[in-house]
């Protein structure tokens, strides 16, 4: 942890510096046009000041995004349609629902694949194919089909999240459940262990490290799924809807703050899984 602190800080400062410089470069044409129309010459410091404080900049500065986030997260009532907490929760609930469904589906599929040769051969290619279809093309179809049978709101978004998140779970768990070596399986056979006993006492504990890696990937994918699910549905709530409406009205600051909120949300969720992982690994004496 301490070892990585300095490099991370260095890179962060570097990124912020680049960001501010690009804000000047990208927003300067607007500032210069404005100055020309009012027949004024801008000094460099005036130019910088203008490019860093426009209402609809091409690239808002970090402090503008930070201020917008502060305003919409802490200053607005959480029930307000302009509160990012409100929109964040809408997206988070779909993310978590999709993540749980995806995890259950992924684990069940992995169990079937590991224990049944026919499932392995017949289902696995379809699982891989499923992830080659661009989700942006598929998401509207899922929403249309589900709404036609009466499912709207959280449900279609959760399904899209599930669609994205089950994949890393299946792949990781198949690998994890197959990670016991031949000796360990033979050992179990010499005790006449049933397939179920081998699963419970050997395969599942051995798959735990794989599971946590998969859960982190699945959680991130799930959030992406929920946001993508909000884009084509004309949703009015959620971080995705916030980004979309921001782009309609050229509210770049709004887009960026929704984007950062999503990123912070993803980092927190993945971090939470990391904390649980550290706890479980410690209890199970897993070293990595």
């Amino acid at each position: 942890m301490n070892n990585s602190f300095l490099p991370i800080i260095t890179i962060s400062i570097f990124i912020v510096l680049i960001w501010y410089s690009f804000s000047i470069v990208l927003n300067s044409s607007w500032a210069l046009d404005k100055a020309e129309r009012s027949d004024r010459q801008l000094s460099f410091s005036e130019l910088v000041q203008d490019t860093w404080s426009q209402k609809k900049p091409k690239l808002p500065t970090p402090h503008q995004v930070g201020y917008e986030m502060w305003k919409t997260i802490f200053d607005k009532k959480v029930t307000s349609k302009r509160s990012l907490v409100y929109h964040g929760w809408i997206t988070l609930s779909a993310t978590l629902a999709g993540f749980i469904l995806g995890t259950i589906l992924g684990v069940l599929l992995a169990l079937a694949i590991v224990h049944d040769k026919a499932t392995d051969l017949s289902v696995m290619p379809w699982i891989i194919t499923s992830q080659t279809i661009p989700i942006l093309a598929l998401a509207p179809m899922i929403i249309v089909v589900l709404s036609s049978i009466g499912f709207t709101g959280l449900m279609p978004k959760a399904v899209i999240s599930m669609y994205l998140s089950f994949f890393p779970i299946v792949v990781g768990m198949v690998k994890g459940l197959r990670s016991p070596d031949l000796l360990e399986i033979d050992q179990m056979k010499t005790w006449s262990a049933s397939r179920f006993q081998i699963l419970i006492k050997l395969r599942l504990p051995k798959s735990i490290p794989f599971l946590f890696t998969s859960l982190k990937l699945g959680m991130a994918a799930s959030l992406v799924g929920a946001i993508v699910g909000e884009l084509p549905s004309g949703a009015i709530a959620g971080l995705g809807a916030r980004m979309l409406s921001g782009s309609y009205y050229g509210q770049t600051i709004q887009i960026w703050s929704a984007l950062f909120t999503a990123a912070i949300l993803a980092a927190s969720l993945v971090g939470l899984i990391g904390i649980i992982q550290a706890f479980v690994f410690k209890r199970m004496m897993i070293t990595q």
Partner: peptide, 19 residues
């Protein structure tokens, strides 16, 4: 014989479960 627990088998590696 295996079902009647006729033998115990010791492998080259101890094969203990770390957890």
């Amino acid at each position: 014989a295996r079902r009647h627990r006729a033998y115990g088998y010791v492998f080259q590696a101890a094969g203990l479960y770390p957890w």
